[in-house]
């Protein structure tokens, strides 16, 4: 295959799996742009912030930072806290992003929740170039988000569609990826630890503070259970009974 054909084949394989994100990001992006506009920031701000930050929930938080008193240290700590989950994404993608050349910095830059979960779980056809595939997944998500935010910023307070609930498309996507992962794996300990610990931490610490405690507890349990989990995984790969 020549280069153009390789690139096009990767685009054709990547686009379909990003369609749910197209729906979700257009909706959330427009909501974000409108919110920015109503907060006194025009489409230009929405465009640059969605382009450069590309982390949905953090961008909503950033608007409140911009409207408050000037507090750089507070902004730094809050951002690190809200986005700490990306550390787990990075550790999970060390192998998958290897060998992707000049695309690697962009893949890491664009590793939002949705790009991570799609690239992490996608079964890429053998004839399709992995690097280009993951590049297009990330780029398309990025384009949807920036387009949505900019349109929202331009429309401002003129939009009045009742699309409440469309944001559930993201939850549905994560549930689907969770189920796919579950069906692919023979050992379910880690998946159950992830759900169980997160629920308990959410109840104990509340919606705004549970992520970091949940990450630490997940890390601790996975570390303590390493011997057992490694043994089980190897046994499962060989097809032996546990």
């Amino acid at each position: 295959m020549n280069k153009q054909a390789t690139v096009f084949a990767a685009f054709r394989a990547a686009f379909p799996i990003t369609v749910p994100i197209l729906a979700g990001f257009m909706f959330l992006g427009i909501a974000y742009g409108v919110f920015m506009n109503l907060s006194g920031f025009g489409a230009g701000w929405a465009f640059f912030m969605s382009l450069l930050i590309f982390a949905g929930s953090m961008e909503f938080v950033a608007v409140s930072l911009l409207l408050g008193a000037f507090n750089p240290l507070g902004a730094l700590l809050l951002t690190l806290m809200v986005n700490a989950r990306h550390l787990f994404y990075g550790l999970s993608m060390l192998e998958k992003y290897k060998g992707t050349g000049w695309k690697k910095p962009y893949l890491i830059f664009g590793m939002c929740d949705e790009s991570f979960s799609l690239n992490q779980s996608a079964t890429i056809p053998r004839e399709v170039d992995r690097g280009w595939f993951m590049f297009f997944v990330t780029l398309l998500n990025h384009v949807y988000w920036v387009a949505g935010a900019t349109i929202g910023g331009l429309l401002g307070s003129f939009v009045h569609f009742d699309l409440e609930g469309l944001e559930f498309v993201m939850t549905a996507l994560f549930v689907v990826i969770f189920i796919e992962q579950w069906m692919k794996e023979k050992v379910h300990d880690s998946a159950m630890i992830g759900i169980g610990v997160s629920v308990v931490c959410l109840i104990v610490f509340g919606a705004d503070r549970f992520i970091i405690p949940a990450m630490l507890v997940i890390l601790a349990i996975l570390t303590l259970a390493r011997k057992k989990l490694e043994r089980e995984t190897i046994a499962a790969e060989k097809g032996e009974p546990l």
Partner: peptide, 17 residues
Amino acid sequence: YLGKVLPAATIGLLVIY
């Protein structure tokens, strides 16, 4: 090892998030 076991737990965390 973490790179292998973390994805499943992380997607679980993301569902709850």
